[in-house]
């Protein structure tokens, strides 16, 4: 996002100043004449399990959210980390689901999802950065909390 101009000059006309966004950036309350948000809405999903019942909903809802133009971030921790380990997704299956887990991961990534592995959980589950798929980012508690504070939707599956 451009940092140019004052916060006031970046605001959509007609909005009172108290609807200014986080750190003066345009907020999700700013809409154009057609009601389209000027800033993409964001969905953050906390994935804390490798139980198929709790692994597939984040991907079904997450990919759906991407279709509705929300930016998607999936945050994996504890046994949820197994989903984004190299070869991990292949071993998690849910019969009848519309896609396989590797298939869902591919769709989510093609549509720009961020996948974040919780490095705070590495000592607990005995993981290290080399264990994870290409493209996975690493973050801890501060990463999750700051993403959650800026997200429009936060879902938890654990």
């Amino acid at each position: 996002m451009s940092k140019g101009g004052s916060a006031a000059s970046r605001r959509a006309p007609g909005y009172p100043p108290w609807r200014g966004g986080w750190r003066g950036e345009p907020s999700r309350f700013h809409e154009d004449a057609k009601g389209t948000p000027l800033v993409a809405q964001k969905m953050l999903v906390f994935c804390g399990s490798d139980d198929p019942d709790k692994v597939f909903p984040p991907f079904m809802l997450g990919c759906g959210a991407q279709a509705l133009d929300l930016e998607l971030t999936l945050f994996f921790t504890l046994t949820g980390l197994n989903v984004i380990k190299k070869g991990g997704a292949e071993g998690i299956e849910l019969p009848g689901a519309p896609n396989t887990l590797p298939g869902f991961l591919q769709v989510a990534k093609e549509n720009g999802a961020r996948l974040i592995a919780c490095s705070a959980a590495f000592p607990i589950v005995g993981a290290q950065e080399d264990d994870f798929m290409d493209g996975v980012e690493f973050g801890g508690v501060a990463e999750f909390v700051s993403l959650a504070a800026e997200a429009d939707v936060v879902l938890t599956f654990c």
């Binding site: 079904m60 991407q66 519309p98 896609n99």
Partner: peptide, 12 residues
């Protein structure tokens, strides 16, 4: 050939 949410993404 695809199920929810595939058709939404294909429409998009």
């Amino acid at each position: 050939g695809s199920a929810c949410p595939g058709p939404l993404l294909e429409a998009k």
